[in-house]
Simulated scan of single mutants.
Amino acid sequence: MTDAGLERWRLILGEPSAEGLGGLSGAAAERDAALDWLYGRDEELARRDIRREGGPGRSQLSTVDWLDGITRLFPKETVERLQRDAVERYEINDIVTDPAVLERVEPNPALLRAVLRTKHLMNPEVLRLARRLVEAVVRDLIARLAEDVRHSFAGARARRSSRFKQARNFDARRTIRANLGRYNPEEQRIYVETPYFLSRTRRHLAPWQVILLVDQSGSMLPSVIHSAVTAACLWGLPGVKTHLVAFDTEVVDLTEDVSDPVELLMKTQLGGGTDIARAVRFAAQLVEQPRRTIIAVVSDFFEGGSTTDLVRTVRNLVEQGTIVLGLAALDEQADPAYDRECAQKLADVGASVGAMTPGELAAFVAERVGR
């Protein structure tokens, strides 16, 4: 088969389409075998009598062979999608629990999530390898978010003169106004005798507290990851005192580990029930200056505790001047799934409810702190 379009359809449809589209050979046949190893186990397709059977069959491939093969046969974006489906859709856990496999995988967010879900299954050797994977992904996330944070908290230009003549600080308005007397109407030019420049200064940052309350339930895993990264990027900024608190039915203050998000994530215990009210009461005890505090509750708002207690506590915080954010998602997609009834009750008593990317949260904090 030489037609690229037909080959693509043949790879999508598998062996049942061979009669109409023809067979595969060489690298295309290897791709077909790799796809069948993964998607040939789809029970939903089997129930509908749709079988993707191709190549030598999945039984002839080990997980290590499969990973080596897809890395060689497919582009990086496709490899990441196949790995994500393997660990999240088909729960092929040996991708992140087998040392031989871990040494071959390319770190990406899907594998980070898989490690955090399965780390309790790992022996010390595997956990050491998995930690390297976590470090690589977290390092990349921090590098990307740190740029947004630096931009949000960048110093503003002061409206006073500077003797340091740098192009980025050129005060065009004052320079034009001061040299208007040297305007030549025939040439339509202003001849500048004295240029003016602005000095730069950092904003005056009054002290603020930012308290991140993070739901540890399994569905919130992407938000748990990005909350840890966000807290690390906010940690140590002038005028910002950051807290990170994780909760399910219990509440754990993780603030002492904020500067090491890898260690923090490796300590995270996913699953269990959810008692948001208890977590918000804990956060209320941390508040030092109510009107200088932001409490961000990162949760799907499926409350396992008392909704009445939760609403009452949030109302009290808002009435004392604390900013309460209810974030149904804090990740790069900001695509939430949450209990809208509970979220609406919190909005009715003054909380701001929605979803944010980490960069948007950093900008929100910077806007408040810079006032």
Rank of each mutant, 00 (worst) to 15 (best):
A28N: 11
A18T: 15
G26S: 09
D32S: 08
Y39Q: 00
Y39A: 00
A27Q: 14
G23E: 11
D42Y: 03
L21M: 07
G23V: 11
L24Y: 03
S17C: 01
L45F: 12
E19A: 15
L45P: 02
G40R: 05
D36E: 15
Y39L: 04
A27N: 13
E44W: 07
A34M: 09
R41N: 08
D42I: 10
Y39M: 00
S17R: 02
A29G: 03
D32E: 14
L45I: 10
A34W: 05
Y39H: 05
E30F: 07
A27M: 14
R31G: 00
L35D: 02
E30V: 11
E43W: 13
S25T: 14
E44G: 10
E19N: 13
L24I: 07
A29M: 11
E30K: 13
L35H: 03
L21H: 01
A29C: 04
S17G: 03
A27T: 13
Y39F: 12
A29E: 13
A33Y: 00
D36Y: 11
E44P: 00
R31A: 02
A18L: 12
A33N: 06
Y39C: 00
S17W: 08
G20E: 14
G26L: 07
L24R: 06
G23Y: 10
G22S: 02
L21W: 06
A46R: 02
A33F: 03
D36V: 15
L35N: 01
W37I: 02
D36T: 15
G22V: 10
G40H: 05
L38E: 04
A27L: 14
E19D: 14
G40T: 03
D42E: 11
S25D: 11
S17H: 06
A34K: 00
E19H: 13
L21N: 00
E43M: 11
G22E: 02
S25Q: 11
D32I: 06
D36G: 08
A46C: 00
A28W: 08
A34F: 08
R47G: 04
A27F: 13
P16A: 04
G23W: 10
G20L: 15
A29N: 09
A18M: 12
A18D: 14
G23N: 10
G26R: 09
G40K: 05
G40M: 02
G26N: 08
A33C: 09
A18H: 14
W37R: 09
E43T: 14
G40I: 01
E30Q: 13
A34S: 11
G26W: 08
L24G: 01
G40P: 03
S17P: 07
D36M: 12
P16V: 09
L35Q: 03
E19W: 13
Y39E: 02
E44N: 08
A33V: 12
G23A: 10
A28C: 04
E44S: 04
W37A: 00
A29I: 05
G20V: 15
L24W: 01
S25K: 13
G22M: 06
L21D: 01
L24P: 04
G23I: 09
A33L: 08
A18P: 13
D36Q: 14
A18V: 15
E30C: 07
E30W: 09
E19C: 08
A27H: 15
Y39I: 01
G40Y: 05
L38G: 01
A29P: 06
